[in-house]
Amino acid sequence: MPITLLLHGLEQGLIFGIMVLGVFITYKILDFPDLTVDGSFPLGAAVAAKVIFTGGNPLWGTFLALIAGFLAGMITALLHTKLKLTNLLSGILTMTLLYSVNLRIMDKPNIPLLGKVTLLEQIQNYFPNISLNYLIPFFFLFLIIILKLVLDLFFSTEIGLAIIATGDNEQMIRSLGTNTDMTKLIGLCLSNALVALSGAFFAQYSGFADVNMGLGTIVAGLASVIIGISIIRIPTIFWRTIAVVVGSLIYRLILIIALRYGYKLGFEPGDLKLISVLLVIIALSIPLIKSRIDFLTSFSLGRKDLQNKNHPGEEV
């Protein structure tokens, strides 16, 4: 495999890894399947692209994207906690309304950023000796490590633990004095802020923002989270935040390989979404298939210990 292909996989895996950290917060920690991300990813891209396109500071644009994502998460949280809509419906509604909002922000379905100074080019001005090919992956690796450490720290604080408990046993944490409307709000805002940040960086990396670029973000996020967690199985936040980013890298690599060599098997670019969904289904069914196989082989091997296998707390 050419080295550039690997580098592209690494770059995209890291950029989308920021989004995956966000999906991890809602899907795994809060136990809230949040579809808002399909809208907040292009929202981040739209906000950053608009600011950069109109000659604004890219750093400022990226920061505004983060704030916009935060607010998008807040809308979903308020729909769910105040109006008592189900979590899926709240996400779908916000995702759909964001489509119009994104069009309004961009004024048109697509903003090209070619020839504009993005954050990545600004950074390169500080390191003129390093080729952009290596600077980009290093920058995003550095960024994602920082984000990961900040998240680890956050989830060891009192509020952080209360958010984890909200996803684990909501009735309990409420009877221990925590307003679970609040913990859900914080979790959703944080998650969508990360997703929008990821969108902002992806727009600057790929040189455009498109109103349809968010389609399937949730599937990509879920696939990455599930792949990562089924590979690295240590159930602590420290390892989980590593696991989901690793999952994102693997997922992007698979997609890039499918795009590059898939035609040999008769795949077309339009089949990409189908492949992503198949990946999710396979990753989700691995634990079940594995336990089936263990169960069946236990009879042929006569192993009693496996027949009565019961591991509470292993599957988190």
Binding site: E158, L161, A162, I164, A165, D168, N169, Q171, M172, I173, S175, L176, G177, T178, P235, P312, G313, V316
Partner: peptide, 19 residues
Amino acid sequence: LGTAPYMSIEENLVLSLKR
């Protein structure tokens, strides 16, 4: 109902300490 299964013993206890 009274404890969070995927959290550790110390995390459960510390959550109840500060109301």
